[in-house]
Write a protein that binds this DNA or RNA. Sequence first.
RNA 1: GCCGGUGUGGCGGAAUCGGCAGACGCCCGAGACUUAAAAUCUCGUGGGAUUAUAUCCCGUACCGGUUCGACCCCGGUCACCGGCACCA
Length: 798
Amino acid sequence: MKYDYKQYEKHWQNKWEEDKVFVCDIDKSKKKFYGLVEFPYPSGAGMHVGHIKAYGGLEVITRKKRMEGYNVLFPIGFDAFGLPTENYAIKTNTHPRTVTDNNIAKFTSQMKRVGFGFDWTRVIDTTEEDYYKWTQWIFLKLFEHGYVFRDKASVNYCPSCRCVLSNEDSQGGKCDICHSDVVQKSKDVWYLRITKYADKLLQGLKDVDYLPNIVLQQENWIGKSEGAFASFALKEVDEKLRIYTTRPDTMFGVTFMVMAPEHPLIDKYAEKIGNMSDVIAYREECAKKTEFERTQLNKDKTGVKLQGLTAINPLSGKEVPIFISDYVMMGYGTGAIMAVPAHDERDFEFAKKFGVDIIPVIKGGDGESAYTGDGEMINSEFLNGISNKKEAVSAAIKVLEEKGLGEGGTQFKMKDWAFNRQRYWGEPIPIVHCQHCGDVAVPYDELPLRLPNMEQFVPGEGGESPLAKVESFVNCVCPKCGAPAKRETDTMPQWAGSSWYFLRYLDPHNEKEFCSKEALDYWMPVDWYNGGMEHVTRHMIYSRFWHRFLYDIGEVNTPEPYAKRTAQGLILGPDGEKMSKSRGNVVDPNEIVDKYGADVLRVYIMFMGDYEKASPWSDSSVRGCKRFLDRVAGMAEMFGCASTAESESALHKLIKKVTSDIDNMKFNTAIAAMMSYINGVYDAGAINRDELKVFVTLLAPFAPHLAEEMWHDLGESTYVSLTPWPKYDESKTVDNTVEIAVQFLGKLKGTVVVPADADENTAWEIIEKSGVLDQALEGKTIVKKIYVKGRIFNVVAK
RNA sequence: GCCGGUGUGGCGGAAUCGGCAGACGCCCGAGACUUAAAAUCUCGUGGGAUUAUAUCCCGUACCGGUUCGACCCCGGUCACCGGCACCA
């Protein structure tokens, strides 16, 4: 075998590194292209074939861009703080630093074996001091500008990890790391005010080119709703109960109010409430439920009617009772609602159970269930007769405003970002607690605040951070007043380091700034970011928030970090199930590289299906790709013939197809086109030498090692990886004659070959001469002829 | 429950704008080469009827519609996948 991958893959990887083929620098004479992939979490298991797919897409794209003359930045690094490493370290009694270093070494060698064209001079590791120094620096900027606050709150807590989780990390009531049930616990929590950016994050989606489902998921996560705030006066005390509603049009249908069990007004007026003991009992009952139980749909509505407190409808003046119930959450809106059972399903269910009045205010309901549709207003005084939608909504808001009892307003589902973790392996939060000054920022010039070296870092039973045990770390002096003080001992969540890493790549060795202005000006924004769908509502939201904040304080030059975002589909196991250790269906990329070489692995993963969709692994299809590359290599012994108009046309069509397919991430059809081309060459038994060279350049982004080797054997002394991408001549991709389908009443009867520019009459003459329609048309009269140039000729006859 | 997405041969998947369904690959079958096997090469391969070739019928989850013509558009149904989930 002339082309044995074992002989040349390593060779070319070394050559690329020696000659800095993928190393880039600012070059204002060239157009830049910044391609970004989600840097890996270096787990002990090593790389997964899914990593190869995730990076493979932009690997092909950036290689092509480089050949097209762009100055390409395609960096890689490691997102290495986090619980899995820490848990593994505890289990094996190894320091997380050692675990991390080992895992990074493993990932690095694996990625190099696959031949990815990363700029290895820019590698970053979020756990290095010179990196997390700047993570802390950004945190302090957020603190300085009032985006950090501390609160005692009921939070998502994972009993197994002994750690607080953000809303994003406990989706579905499960811990994202260990999948245990998350419980609610009252804890001291550091929050980042991401909600202040809710509107900007939403608006920003209009200026970027993300896949539509990514935009939609982010919009849903941010969850903007429009409605009104209204104040219901309490009859017995001088107090107003403020509520939020999206349906101010239905305000005349309010028959009761509901407050969250934890609502502060309850405690404020405890002595006015006749049945406070029932309230306390109900609260205890609610506290016992897990988040999951509490949010289960279709469960029975529960609640307690408050005795001794009554609300007054600001529009109608009517008095209505007040309940507490856990179907109203303290964390959304104002923690209290006006209930309109005639037009809200939950309120309806509650009213039925507790025997409260149901007053319809919109025509159209049947009284059997809540009517949530639109219609004409009834039973609503000044709103009667108009449509509920826009008219009644704005009329109701107008009157509320006139009375000073409410106003239009918006609400977001997104919550503030719970930012502290009671674990060791993370960035220390650079805050000092001083008895006199409160929470004080560590001065910028004292950064990095180093993570102390520890031998034992199991978190405390009570959920306190392991750092609390290190007295030399905890005890310090207040930077403001110099009095003895204590350091914050919690660390940042895993998502901190990844919220700005794409900026550090631009200038990874800068000791004075997180990134130079010059580098920001040249490289930002990221032109194309590819990654997994699982990061759409976390990493992407977080990093967009940080970036937008940095933009607002003048530290970066673009409001949005990522101009374009795509996502690859999963690689499933051969059984069609998600790959997992427990199912035993995981494919190790190393084995494929050992057996067939990196190029085969790369080509197969790009060929296996639509890049954006999930598809199952198939070992025999891998062999098909091996066969393809063998056939490519085999062409090296087939050149020598002259180029013909036909061969030239085939090649130009191929250039066109591969070029546009790569741009559209249709890697599978690009490879299919190359396979077809090769089949044509084998049919002909020969290929022209120059045409083979063009083919090799087209193959280079997919199978770069074989391409370099063949390029070299074709007598070239340059790198094919740096060779200009071939251009096609549109006129050579168009055929002179085309085969068109001939149909009778839309059914295929045969095909004929006609000149590509043939008009209807010419085409019809050819069809008549061919006789394909003779049988179908026998004894019939032609009613209509439909001719689509280059496609079909359909005849309608009776 | 709500919001998305998907549904095409034995399998992975193709199919610009509504215009030859099944490209390309896998699997399988036949042949060539070989003492033989592997590898390689060549050919065949949606299902059915029939006289192998000609010809005809059926076929893109299901039911119906629009159209000369529908995998594609419209209405309805089912299944699977993903996201959100008492958000007032």
